[in-house]
Write a protein that binds this DNA or RNA. Structure first.
Lengths: 329, 329
DNA sequence: CGCAATAGCGCAAGCGATTGTGGAATTTGA
DNA sequence: TCAAATTCCACAATCGCTTGCGCTATTGCG
């Protein structure tokens, strides 16, 4: 069913059909009605691909995600997706592999997407540049990369890390350890830097550190390693919630320690599971709804003005206190 | 950058460029090389939309999801997405609202998708029909709808429910309750039917029932209600894991009961969190990888043969025993 | 009532590719 | 060596739509 078929049935020109389906185009009510009648009789639906081709606006936005295991990403993905849909855009979803990101980008560009959202902490920077050079705005969530024209939306990870340190020190912890995410990710760097600087403000240094690479298994091993050392931490700041759950499981089930009596735990993200009573995880909130809204504002503004300008939004961090941290009294 | 630009630079016809980028087309090595050289010099990438239009194959598959809160869906979504990408298809993602499904379908059809995957438990049947009538194969994951030409992939929910009943009875439970998901979803109906029939095999009936609508909050309320009645259950079968976590939280934190000593809990899905030690949830596995693989096989077979035939795959259920059920001795 | 302005429509040129057709160049076979 | 068979390429039609242009018919205004 094409617009020509509809035009024939409605006895109008094909362009009249087109205009009927183009908001704001000049059509009389009479023709519009005849066209609509014919269209619904034939079950006609405009071909979005043809429309995209000629108008140069595909209304397609690509979203790249590395993994959905960490609940933060599904939540963000849902928010992004709903917001884009509400604005009349479609979401092309791509899962990236650690290795084959080039192929992914090649495909994205072929589909004439008007913008790219990267909601993932593991994405190379030259990849981002490649997109920006093509004139397609890129917004990265939860990560920024220097020397790129890609915009970014992050929470204030440095301040967040600092708040964690401050809170742990104030609540009387002495041997405070850190479990890192992916070493060279901006989130990890910033959270760690803020954390150390917060400790330093109180004249402390970190009393142990291991690396969990943002995975559940990695965090499991990191915890075993951390707690097998001579000095046992009395608090652990874990670079994200997803790892923190693994940490808590190991501490309680394997090591037989109590949380928070023996060890306090703080995570980062405030994913839904953090509020589940079995964990009650104290954590730093990253408001996914807010981040998604911000990312989409930045992206669509550029899409609609057909410009690429680098913007970096940093949302305030907020400590969410639950039961996983021992407080005096 | 269009194929014409490349053709000019390479001093060949535009169709030569096209054939170079069409696997299996007849081009000499000499021309292919010249075209490739020109293409990479210009940074040319074939326009997938134009290609889709003329060839009638968009290589676009729509995936509909209602929500990503329940971790089962992100996991399945990731598997589906990766598998489709590997086969050279792109994923158009749509989040459905409880109300506005018609608009979603209208959009999907406009984008000339070649197939639709519905990985969600809440999707109307006439919606599915609308797609099938357009000649677009539809595969539903984790749900089936009668009077539809939509295919489906489910686990054997009836058998799964029966296994749960059998296991609970054999482990000595007497007052066995059920917390339902969405009442009219096929998953809930089947799990509940199988469960009751399993109880009946042992001469038992359910000793309590409330409805959680597959949401965390719903399950929280359902649990409070269930445990405020005179007869307290000694085991609860919860229609999915996502609700089961809420149930366990209420039982332990609000009611001060122990799991499994006072109450045993069984869920359904075996989402990643079920294996977390804080829950150790006994559950029925739905193998997301297997379901995704199956769904894609069924869908792509129809896409490639350009036929729509109803198929219903039922994968075997498997009980995963963890610590949330009290066992004698 | 007359003329300018405007609204509404049809015509036709694309958007960037695929693909059938036919012809030139090359290869094959006797 | 020459006809027949291939191979490879260019030509041109086409996919379904948007949109600038120009024409007609209507409207507005003095």
């Amino acid at each position: 069913m094409t617009s020509i078929d509809v035009a024939k049935l409605a006895e109008v020109s094909q362009s009249a059909v087109s205009r009927t389906f183009t908001p704001g185009a000049s059509v009389s009510d009479a023709t519009r009605e005849r066209v609509m009648a014919a269209a619904s009789e034939l079950g006609y639906r405009p071909n979005a691909l043809a429309r995209a081709m000629i108008s140069g606006r595909s209304r397609l936005i690509a979203i790249l995600v590395a993994y959905l295991e960490n609940q933060f990403y599904p939540v963000v993905l849902e928010k992004l997706s709903r917001a884009l849909q509400a604005d009349g855009y479609q979401v092309l979803l791509f899962m990236t592999d650690p290795g084959g990101q080039d192929e992914v980008v090649r495909r994205i560009l072929q589909y004439q997407v008007q913008g790219i959202l990267m909601a993932s902490a593991t994405m190379s920077s030259n990849l981002a540049n490649e997109c920006a050079e093509t004139g397609i705005p890129v917004v990265m969530l939860n990560r920024y990369v220097a020397n790129t024209s890609a915009s970014s939306v992050t929470s204030d990870n440095i301040e967040g890390g600092r708040m964690v340190a401050d809170f742990l020190v104030r609540t009387g912890h002495k041997r405070i350890a850190y479990i890192a995410g992916i070493e060279d990710s901006s989130t990890n760097r910033d959270r760690e830097a803020g954390f150390y600087s917060g400790l330093a403000d109180h004249g402390l240094v970190v009393s142990g550190r291991s690396v969990g690479n943002y995975t559940f298994e990695g965090a499991t091993h990191a915890t075993r390693e951390l707690f097998s050392r001579p000095v046992r931490p009395d608090a652990v700041f874990v670079a994200n919630d997803h790892m923190a759950f693994a940490v808590m499981d190991v501490i309680r089930s394997e090591l037989g320690l109590r949380i928070p009596e023996d060890v306090s735990i703080i995570g980062y993200d405030n994913v839904p599971e953090a509020s589940w009573n079995a964990y009650g995880l104290t954590t730093v909130e990253q408001h996914p709804e807010e981040m998604a809204r911000m990312a989409i504002n930045i992206l669509l503004e550029q899409v609609e003005n057909r410009t690429v300008t680098k913007r970096a939004a940093v949302l305030p961090a907020k400590l969410i206190v639950r039961s996983s941290v021992r407080t005096p009294g």
